[in-house]
Design a protein around this nucleic acid. Structure first.
Length: 140
DNA sequence: TTCTTGACCAGAT
DNA sequence: CATCTGGCCAAGA
């Protein structure tokens, strides 16, 4: 549970932003933080996804793992961040299921080519307030 | 209550 | 190249 209204806003904003990531594309924790106007908090984006509730029929959770594509968020180096046993593997499986090529390194590292699958709209908070129609592709 | 631990990141060493 | 550092703040011990 968030400890304040500000924190609650943050959780909801993160989930809503993640829902904007197109199918078959990935982005980074840092980029989500940037889009929300808080570039200093990529870590809190990870915290939010970690706390994302599982879908359970009958609950009133607005956001859960069935309507928030948590698997499309990876770290800035293009790697799926390692965590509890099987966690990263589950994320890789979910991504491959939607057509994303995930390379497995010799040490089990799971990497994704951001040049191909990266989703980095140049939408910034200030512009977002002015124009709601700034769509650009920061290709490589 | 305080202290430690993270699904992170960019810049400095 | 590899490591370390400071910043962030929710949870768990």
């Amino acid at each position: 549970m968030p400890r304040s209204d500000e924190a609650e806003w943050w959780f909801n904003a993160v989930y809503a932003a993640v829902q904007e990531i197109p199918h078959g594309k990935v982005t980074s924790y840092g980029h989500i933080a940037l889009l929300l106007g808080r570039p200093e908090r990529p870590r809190q984006v990870g915290i939010c996804l970690k706390r994302l509730p599982s879908f359970v029929a009958g609950t009133d959770h607005h956001f859960h793992d069935s309507n928030v594509p948590w698997q499309r968020v990876i770290n800035s180096k293009g790697m799926i961040s390692p965590r509890g046993p099987g966690g990263a593997t589950r994320q890789a499986a979910a991504l491959r299921r939607e057509g994303v090529t995930v390379r497995t390194g010799a040490l089990g590292e799971l990497t994704i080519d951001l040049g191909i699958y990266g989703w980095f709209p140049s939408m910034l908070p200030s512009e977002e307030a002015e124009n709601s129609e700034s769509e650009e592709e920061g290709d490589a």
